[in-house]
């Protein structure tokens, strides 16, 4: 059997694929954060809680109303987006123009409140959510057993990431968005409703978190703590990619997922910190992040 540094190549392929799957979640979540930061200059600490809400929305929809996975994939992000509109209109808007620290503290507080409520209502050990019947089971790839659902996660996340990138970088709406980031007053003067654009951006960013939550529900336990376990890693991904960089968030998400997967083979104990080691190095060498433009 061929081996690389003592690990059979077959096992290595398996781990690379798994890294890619985990990278899909990092990419989706950090993309939302990057979009929000780019437009609102808000470090959205509530992102993890909203991801958790997406998963809970899917679970509630299934158990209380019999809404299946496919419908939840559309409805849960919508519900999270509506909550996002409320959060932006009632609270975040008042902090516009202040130091980003205020937004961070506000959203951090919000996430504690949301998680606390769900823990109170549903306990901490989580709720089960089965994958949709179409995606159950798995295929044997020779080097590993790939659950079909995990394959779907990669496909769905690549499509959504690409669509988001396309909307922001290649459409007229995206051009307005980017212009409003550069100079909101001027864009407003041209007759474009900037406050609406800001609200829509926040709603869109958190909808991505909700979408990731629905994708995650059949894999992880739907638990109030699921977001807080992930959010710090996702922030590291955003910092490595460069705050506010769309492409940076996507590419770094996948890249660090794979790197983490490899660490789990060679030195599992370090897998929880490898991303932060990379973050520290990147900050030392390129403070604006790999894809950031610097200030």
């Amino acid at each position: 059997m061929t081996t690389i540094f003592g690990v059979p190549t077959a096992a290595l392929y398996g781990q690379l694929l798994i890294g890619l799957i985990n990278g899909s979640f990092y990419a989706l979540l950090s993309l939302g954060l990057a979009v929000i930061f780019g437009m609102l200059h808000v470090i959205n600490f509530a992102h993890g809680a909203l991801y958790m809400l997406g998963a809970f929305a899917a679970w509630l929809a299934l158990t209380k109303f019999g809404v299946n996975y496919w419908a939840a994939l559309a409805l849960a992000p919508l519900a999270v987006a509506i909550l996002g509109v409320i959060i932006e209109r009632t609270t975040l808007r008042r902090l516009a123009g202040l130091d980003p620290l205020y937004g961070l503290l506000l959203t951090f507080g919000l996430s504690l409140v949301i998680e606390g409520m769900f823990r109170h209502w549903y306990g901490s050990s989580g709720q089960p959510y089965a994958p949709p019947p179409q995606l159950q089971g798995g295929v044997n790839l020779g080097f590993m057993f790939l659950p079909i659902y995990r394959g779907w996660v990669v496909v769905a996340s690549v499509v959504v990431c690409f669509a988001t990138w396309f909307v922001i970088e290649r459409t007229r709406l995206g051009a307005y968005l980017r212009a409003a980031t550069e100079n909101p007053a001027l864009v407003q003067a041209f007759g474009i409703n900037v406050p609406l654009l800001v609200t829509a951006t926040y709603a869109g960013g958190v909808a991505l978190a909700g979408f990731a939550g629905v994708l995650a529900a059949p894999i992880y336990q739907v638990s109030p703590l699921m977001g807080s376990n992930l959010i710090i890693v996702v922030f590291a991904v955003v910092v490595v990619g460069g705050m506010g960089s769309i492409m940076g968030a996507i590419v770094t998400g996948y890249m660090l997922g794979v790197l983490e997967g490899l660490t789990k083979v060679y030195y599992p104990q370090a897998s929880a910190i490898v991303i932060f080691v990379v973050m520290a190095i990147v900050l030392l060498v390129r403070p604006a992040g790999l894809f950031g433009r610097g200030e």
Partner: peptide, 20 residues
Amino acid sequence: AVKHPLNNTDFSSFLLQAQA
């Protein structure tokens, strides 16, 4: 045996090793 970090969310890598 494989040692995983506390509060880990994804166990697939470790499970592959257990399977192997």
